[in-house]
């Protein structure tokens, strides 16, 4: 536990020492704020006090920002050679990967926490449904859990941060956008299958206040899969 904690702590320290952390956080808050202003009509008197319109496009924004947040994790260790000092310390590959993953997640939660201003404002000026708010934030956290694992996997593949970002962001963006726009074109069982990967749709359920077990399982399983693959990639670097 101490080893895992040490890795998480060091990773957070490094993250907050780099400008990327602040750019990602500022970018997220700025875009969320801009969307809120564009949707200002939705918050007039008599309208439902819901956050749905603010966070509608958040999964898409996260496909860009989460890979930027996690692109350093392993790439930077490879590039600077500190990977060697980590791999020759008495720490298992899984401990190292999971410690770094936790740090990224903590950062992500800090980033999300900044948007709590919107439900709080709603509480001041209206009467939001806190169950719905809770479900929405659960959806956001689950999105982060899955996206962060995938972004770390991308980072484990290359020593170049920019490449890691593109490898992380492109597939996520394609998946989120293409499935969202294509799902209506399919019929019957094909639609059922495609629907499974509809991240916008799955997030939409949480945003409406519906906590579905299969959604929770989908995001958690994705995270487990990519964390496992990341550990395998890290292990395989020894064999080259």
């Amino acid at each position: 536990m101490r080893k895992l904690g040490a890795i998480t702590q060091r990773e957070l320290l490094s993250l907050f020492c780099s400008p990327i952390a602040y750019i990602v956080i500022a970018g997220f808050w700025l875009v969320t704020g801009a969307i809120t202003i564009w949707n200002a009509d939705a918050f007039g008197p008599g309208k439902p006090a819901t956050l749905r319109d603010i966070f509608m496009w958040t999964p898409f924004i996260l496909t860009i920002l989460v890979p930027a947040m996690s692109m350093r994790t392993l790439s930077e260790e490879y590039r600077s050679g500190t990977f060697e000092t980590l791999m020759t310390a008495p720490v298992s590959d899984a401990q190292m990967v999971f410690g770094k993953y936790l740090a990224s997640l903590i950062f992500y939660v800090i980033m999300l926490a900044g948007t709590l201003i919107y439900p709080l404002l709603m509480e001041v000026f209206g009467n939001p449904d806190w169950g719905e708010v809770l479900a929405l934030y659960l959806g956001l956290v689950l999105l982060g859990i899955a996206f962060t694992a995938f972004s770390m996997f991308a980072s484990s593949l290359t020593r170049d941060q920019a490449v890691a970002w593109i490898l992380g962001a492109m597939p996520l963006m394609l998946l989120v956008l293409s499935v969202y726009s294509l799902v209506r074109r399919f019929e019957g069982w094909q639609r059922e299958v495609v629907q499974q990967f509809n991240i916008m749709g799955r997030f939409g359920q949480f945003a409406r206040g519906q906590v579905e077990l299969d959604g929770v399982v989908f995001f958690l399983a994705t995270a487990v899969l990519f964390l496992f693959l990341t550990v395998k990639v890290v292990e395989s670097r020894r064999w080259r």
């Binding site: 101490r2 080893k3 904690g5 040490a6 890795i7 702590q9 060091r10 320290l13 490094s14 020492c17 780099s18 600077s80 050679g81 500190t82 990977f83 060697e84 000092t85 980590l86 020759t88 310390a89 008495p90 720490v91």
Partner: peptide
């Protein structure tokens, strides 16, 4: 084993004490 790699890779953003403390924790 105590190992000093050839290029002495270190984390530039950490302070010396922080780094040694981190390494101590890694060693349990």
């Amino acid at each position: 084993v105590g190992y000093l790699p050839e290029a002495v890779p270190l984390y530039p953003e950490m302070r010396v004490y922080e780094y040694l403390n981190f390494r101590g924790k890694l060693r349990g």
